[in-house]
Computed example of a mutant assay.
Amino acid sequence: MTTPSPSVWLRPERPARDRRLSRRRIVACAVAILDAEGGKGLSMRRIAGELGVTAGSLYWYVTTKDELLELALDEVLGEVLAEAGTGPRDGWREALAALAAANRAMLLRHPWVLSDLAGRPNLGPNALALSEAGLAVLAGAGFADADLDAALAAVNDHVIGAVAAETSWRAALDRTGAGTAEWAEEAAAYMRQVARDHPLLGRRMAAAGDVDVERECARRFAFGLECLLDGLAARLPGRP
């Protein structure tokens, strides 16, 4: 009995055999469902219904739901390089910042990716091209060997952490009715205690009441990225 491949990218793509169906159409449908409903809404039967084919016909192109998720992940990773638009005239800081910003934008458009990044191999062409682009920028700046890997990981970790924090913040606002009067009244006594016991935190939490979440998240992301780039610049070979 043949052991299933651990990654869809480790076996050749099968040729299309139905004019109504292709792997590209299947993946596009999967991405649309994931964007709308997350992983809970995705199934081979659901995609078959959306495309007007039988569920069995999908298995010629994709053998498991895990393979489908792997393909969908690589599909949206392709948006990052297209959006970054870096060129040979960009300095390393500008090029790296453009990649990071495009990666953040992609993750906000496709929030399901956050949970799938950690659990799936990134062996697809878009994932590999994106990693190569980031490594090339940092290598051009002067990083090498293990420091090259660590520098790219630091940038990617900042992007993922910032998006996770923003997603959590938005979810918390949704759960509390985005700061409704009822929630504020129930929490008022507790917040007064917080302000008394932790004055700095209390003042910052009070100031956050009228914050534009989207604008503030973008500002925090840019601030953190600038700090990170400053730190990377200070570690370049040849710097005192």
Rank of each mutant, 00 (worst) to 15 (best):
F143M: 06
D157W: 05
T167A: 15
V155L: 05
A141W: 03
L123N: 12
I160C: 07
V159Q: 05
E166S: 14
A162I: 02
L135C: 02
G140Q: 10
A165Q: 11
N122S: 13
A146G: 09
E166V: 00
P121F: 10
L130Y: 15
F143H: 00
A150F: 09
L123M: 07
L135W: 07
E132L: 12
T167P: 05
A133V: 07
L152M: 03
P125D: 04
P125C: 09
H158E: 06
A127S: 15
A150T: 06
A144L: 07
V155P: 00
A151L: 02
A171Y: 04
A151E: 03
V137I: 15
G124A: 11
N156D: 06
A139W: 10
A165M: 13
S131L: 13
G134K: 09
E132K: 11
V155I: 15
A127C: 00
P121Q: 00
A151S: 14
D149I: 09
L138H: 00
A141Q: 08
A133F: 06
D149H: 11
F143Q: 06
F143A: 04
P125I: 06
I160M: 08
A153K: 12
A162N: 14
N156V: 01
L152P: 06
L128P: 03
L123I: 00
S131K: 13
G140K: 03
G142L: 05
L148R: 13
L148Y: 01
A162L: 05
A146Y: 05
H158K: 00
A164N: 08
S168N: 06
D147E: 15
P125W: 04
A154N: 02
T167V: 13
A144T: 02
G161E: 03
A127G: 15
N156L: 09
A165G: 11
L130C: 00
D157Q: 13
D157G: 10
V155C: 02
P121H: 01
L138C: 08
G161Y: 03
A153W: 09
L138A: 00
G140C: 05
A150Q: 09
V159I: 08
V155F: 03
A171W: 11
L128R: 15
V155W: 11
P121T: 01
P125N: 07
A154V: 05
A127Q: 04
A133G: 01
V163I: 07
L148W: 08
A153V: 12
A150Y: 06
A153P: 03
A141F: 14
A133K: 09
A141C: 09
R170L: 14
E132T: 10
A139F: 13
S168I: 01
P121C: 06
W169G: 00
D145Q: 12
N122Y: 08
A153Y: 11
A150H: 13
V137F: 02
S131G: 15
H158Y: 14
V163A: 05
A150R: 14
L128K: 12
A164G: 04
G124S: 02
E132V: 03
G161T: 07
P125M: 02
S168H: 13
A164Q: 15
G124K: 12
G134F: 07
L152I: 07
G124E: 06
N122P: 06
L128S: 10
V163D: 02
D149T: 14
F143C: 03
D157N: 14
A144H: 01
P121R: 11
I160S: 05
A150I: 08
A150S: 11
A162Y: 03
